[in-house]
Design a protein around this nucleic acid. Structure first.
Lengths: 224, 224
DNA sequence: ACAAAACTTTAGAATTTCTTTAGAATTCAA
DNA sequence: TTGAATTCTAAAGAAATTCTAAAGTTTTGT
């Protein structure tokens, strides 16, 4: 997942980039309005984290640019508390979420993931990796135009992996995502194991490549 | 497709217009009640996106105007209030859909398209799939010029499937569409099951092909 | 190398979801 | 109001999914 941080405070920028790089996000930055605009015309980003107050303009004026150039891109507004209140109303329709500074990196991370999940699940007509195609509308999986029949849990598992591709996801995270509060922490992960196996088998049966790797003691990692 | 955005917040208006213009919609705007009324008396619009709170009146009061002047025009209410009372009032007065602010442009787009599909369907002389012909005016179904007699619920179910063809529709979505607010979430889906069976049986009796597939745990999918 | 922990695989039990049926309740039109 | 058609309810049966448990394999730490 590729992020663009539009932010003029160097320290903030560094902290964010360090944190999200360590989580295996691909990070880029733009410290000015002009730079951000330039980058947005050239490269694609999954999510833009946008500070409102920039030295050479307001971040809010970037939203139409993003929306017209990169419809699928998520926008998260990051703003100091006082400047937010007045201007927020106007942003409602353009931004996907907003957060006031200062904020916890964990919170920012959670929101970024939430946006991405929504985008992938709702917006996209198709999500592709290699010769696989996920159709979120139909909740179907295809391999070279041949349908692979997945159960609901398998499908949700796959989508969760695709959303978090190239990142190690823990069994607890998987469990929490697929079962919610219903999943008891004290529970064993037997069912997770079983669904993992079934999904792996169906993917392998189609393409023979190993998409989901086990990171012993940590979790699983999907490489699309 | 021509849209009219009735909305007093300039920023919101601009974001919406940028977005939908980039999607090749023809967009117009009205920032006040009076302006909107004027435009609606002069021009035709496919869909009106209507903010409730306007400086000189409630957007709700525009609905009768639209309905009397432009019967075919779709109405989508956009409101900051997410109270149920507003929602019901909007539907009661003749709105086609309702969305609370803030919302995602993708979501708005999806709903606008959904309204348009429904409108087209109503206006169309015939809707065909394979050797089947639906006549929306008469609410009749034919197979190779032979009429298949459907009950009202069966007909509505079929139309809902045709509108959403190739997409998995959940039982809740079906229930909401066929029964509206009347359908209790706590209710079981027994009646849905029964109507599903009856519709399937009538279709199968005519053509022996399975049009409606069950996606276990997700819903049903119609492939026309 | 050994034991402990983490993970994989298997098979079948338990559960959930869906289908079908039949009859009761409701609606609608004559 | 009455009768026929439609819609809903309930329950039993079928099918598919999900979970459990246990045995087998790999990895890690000492």
């Amino acid at each position: 997942m590729k992020l663009l941080f539009v932010e003029d405070e160097t320290a903030t920028l560094k902290v964010m980039e360090d944190y999200f790089s360590s989580l295996n996000f691909v990070c880029e930055q733009a410290a000015t309005f002009r730079l951000a605009e330039e980058k947005l015309h050239t490269y694609f980003y999954d999510i833009v984290v946008l500070d409102i107050s920039l030295p050479d303009g307001s971040g809010m004026d970037l939203i139409p640019t993003i929306r017209s150039k990169q419809v699928e891109t998520g926008i998260l507004i990051l703003s100091a508390k006082n400047s937010l209140a007045d201007k927020l109303a106007g942003f409602h329709l353009g931004a996907d979420d907003y957060l006031t500074k200062p904020c916890h990196l964990e919170e920012l991370n959670a929101r970024i993931n939430a946006i991405y999940r929504r985008k992938i699940l709702k917006g996209a007509e198709q999500i592709c990796f290699d010769d696989f195609i996920i159709e979120p509308m139909a909740k179907l999986l295809f391999y070279k135009k041949e349908q692979i029949i997945l159960t609901r849990k398998e499908y949700e598992l796959l989508v969760y992996f695709v959303v978090n591709k190239h990142r190690v996801v823990s069994k607890s995270a998987i469990a929490e995502h697929l079962w919610g509060d219903h999943f008891d922490q004290a529970d064993n992960f037997d069912t997770v194991y079983v669904h993992m196996r079934n999904l792996r088998q169906k993917l392998k049966h189609a393409s023979s490549k190993d998409y989901i790797k086990t990171t012993y003691g940590m979790g699983y990692k999907f490489d699309g």
